[in-house]
């Protein structure tokens, strides 16, 4: 049993999302250090605000400004911040009902330890120094004692309205979209069948697996016969020679590829295989490649796969010998 292969796999994407009118007003408001909620038909103020009433589904647009101070409704102490989370030092996750709001906002609370956090405690927004119109414009919450001298860097803890005040929701240069980058790091495991196949390739042997039910040899193997739905475990060496079953002429240079166009990309049925694999055809002018052409792999010193396939010089294969593999 060869070594089971794994490889790092990073998925990274910057999602660009457009905002509805309520979301736009809310996130632009955060940039301007103003917290807006939306009023439902039954008079509740939702913060953060949504575009549609969560109960009746009707469009809701009446905005109201609430205070940057509020009350913790539940909390959880995170001793080990993870990538992307708002603070680098241990912090509390909190749901905060801002003064004037009827619902709670999820964010983080900067506190010295879990002993300093409790449900019902008073907190206020600490604004991020650089604000762009995003939920992270709230840098975090911090404990707030209205009787203490207001010397904190939040500065304006008590400035907002005590009762929600109607707000027009219009600002100069409103934010209309957000870009939300995301990166996740995976470990890809190709599985036993592909690991065996890749190990054989390292020795310049091309292997497939025979289905115990229909006897077909699949290359490259994936551990199961896709026709019969059973495990295929018998190793079969195929090729190295094969037949071009069909092909195309590539005229557009792929970004970063060092291959000059035009070139031929082909389906190649290796001798002994019941499934054609893909490969580039070289060593012959592109306009002379044809169905039935007999080819063999060309390996390079550092490649784990054949670099390309070239003509063997044998007579072309008869159509009947490969028509089932098209």
């Amino acid at each position: 049993m060869p070594e089971i292969l794994t490889a790092p796999l990073t998925v990274s994407f910057p999602f660009t999302r457009s905002l509805g009118p309520v979301q736009s007003a809310f996130l632009t408001g955060l940039r301007e250090r103003t917290v807006l909620g939306v009023r439902t038909r039954d008079g509740r103020i939702l913060v953060p605000p949504v575009e549609y009433d969560p109960v009746t589904a009707e469009e809701i647009r009446d905005l109201a400004e609430v205070a940057p101070t509020g009350t913790v409704t539940t909390w959880a102490w995170n001793p080990a911040p993870r990538p992307g989370q708002p603070l680098r030092t241990p912090f509390a996750w909190v749901l905060v009902r801002l003064d004037g709001a009827d619902t709670a906002l999820l964010h983080v609370l900067d506190a010295p330890g879990p002993h300093a956090v409790r449900t019902g405690m008073r907190v206020r927004i600490r604004w991020a120094p650089e604000r762009t119109g995003a939920i992270t414009d709230i840098g975090c919450f911090e404990p707030y004692d209205p009787h203490e001298d207001d010397g904190g860097d939040g500065g304006d803890g008590g400035d907002g309205p005590r009762t929600p005040a109607p707000h027009h929701g219009t600002f100069d240069d409103p934010v209309t979209g957000i870009v939300a980058p995301a990166r996740l790091d995976y470990t890809y495991t190709p599985g036993r069948a592909q690991s065996r196949h890749l190990a054989a390739l390292a020795g310049r042997r091309i292997t497939g697996e025979r289905c115990p039910s229909c006897s077909k040899v699949h290359v490259p193997p994936r551990g199961a016969c896709p026709t019969c739905g059973v495990a295929a475990t018998e190793q079969v060496e195929v090729g190295p020679r094969g037949t071009v079953t069909t092909f195309c002429i590539v005229n557009i240079k792929a970004k970063g590829a060092g291959i000059e166009v035009p070139y031929v990309y082909a389906h190649i049925a290796l001798d002994g295989a019941d499934l054609a694999l893909h490969g580039r055809i070289g060593g012959i002018p592109y306009d002379e490649v044809r169905m039935g052409l007999r080819v063999e792999p060309v390996w390079t010193a550092d490649g784990r796969h054949p670099d390309h396939y070239r003509p063997t010089g044998e007579p072309d294969a008869a159509y009947d010998t490969y028509k089932e593999l098209l």
Partner: peptide, 13 residues
Amino acid sequence: PYYVAPLWPDSVS
């Protein structure tokens, strides 16, 4: 994705 995911609140939290 607008108000919550940018904070990366993990499933245990």
